[in-house]
Design a protein around this nucleic acid. Structure first.
Lengths: 130, 130, 130, 130
DNA sequence: GTGGTCTAGACCACG
DNA sequence: GTGGTCTAGACCACC
């Protein structure tokens, strides 16, 4: 699985990393039980600092996406993953709201937003090759 | 229209301000042509810095939501507002994608996301009183 | 309120810091709404690195004990604090169990453990002076 | 007696091992004079390193729970076991304190903590079968 | 070799 | 001046 870091983006590096790993899981490129590169390895490959990778891994662990084995490295959590916690749902709504509000204000129909989401879902389902 | 600033939120103050003004427009509390408080006025009322209000106004102006006249103050853009630019759509998709991906990865159905959006739209339509 | 760091203890520095701040809250030395020193300030006072303080603050924030205002510094969460979450209770039991098991194995009565706990509670209630 | 190692837990493997052997003794599954598997044997069965088992055994020996004879192998100390040393009591209090303090801070009553401990004791007394 | 912890020093966004 | 982020380099426990 290929990970690309955009150093000039305003999204923090650790967040980019976190999102791409989640995307990898969503697409099925990373399956439950798969090993992830070690902190040092990945940091080296991406040309970023080990602490940055560590932070991303820490967040993924807290989110239930991965498991960190003390001396054996990092592993994708076995299926079916973390599920949608209540806390997560609250957060998601809080994140989604301002986007929806601005879209509404700009005259978009809710169907247009639906179709954006559907497109994302569709791209995840079919795009199982690397 | 009541604006509330949450100092402990992780959203920057200027962004909170921007979003709430957009929400005011969406709800119809602020109509095209309405006056907005001056930078000084609003900053004083909210107990925040001049620059902060200025930045929010600047972004709103750039987004086409408001118009700033040197002498006459700040005014909500006349209907029908900025509309959905192509640039805006690109940005929106980029913002929406990671949220949708994570939701998918957590096993949510797209219908659940649709309904969250619908709920936001509904709250904007009926909630036209303050 | 006085905080003392033991550099030769095996407890991580950030954990020592976290515990002592919790203890300060428990004793009433730190009340809801009180300001805590800034990351840099406290790090300087204690002679430790700013990141270490940052980590402690981060954990306390995640636990609901404190609130971090982006530009205004750190504040003790207003009463009545975080309460005993379900997740917290699970964790507590997991931490308590091995201690109780070993005590049992060494022939202690449960009343002896009770009295240790009671002693701690008592020390927190009366010890409201610095 | 069944020992289970959790490789993804944050508790070190040797500590997990140590605790489970203590728990075995507490439950009566391991009685004074019983033989324990050799270091090699146990390491092989659990799929962990020799050193890890060795460390656990070393700690148990230091705690007075087991006796290690060079030729005859490892044996559970004859009843009544190590008892509650003064040093142990000091350590126990030091370990228990932060847990009790945080519980207090979260508004728990001491009776709630008592009952957690009682539950552990109860589970040890009745659960004498494997 | 792994991750966990700590330090030192830097730049940035925010206000 | 505040916290947030990132880098570099180090030592440690664990296995």
């Amino acid at each position: 699985m290929l990970i690309k870091i955009d150093f000039k983006a305003d999204t923090p590096l650790y967040e980019q990393l976190r999102l791409q790993i989640i995307e990898g899981i969503a697409r099925g490129l990373l399956k439950g039980g798969d090993d992830l590169p070690s902190v040092r390895q990945l940091a080296g490959d991406l040309g970023i600092n080990l602490h940055t990778v560590n932070k991303a891994y820490g967040l993924l662990k807290a989110g239930g996406f991965i498991q960190v084995h003390r001396q054996k490295g990092v592993m994708v959590s076995p299926a079916p993953g973390p599920g949608s916690t209540k806390a997560y749902l609250t957060l998601l709504k809080k994140q989604l709201r301002p986007l929806a509000v601005e879209a509404y204000c700009r005259g978009m129909q809710k169907q247009e937003l639906h179709s954006i989401i559907d497109a994302v879902f569709k791209s995840l389902q079919k795009n199982t090759e690397e």
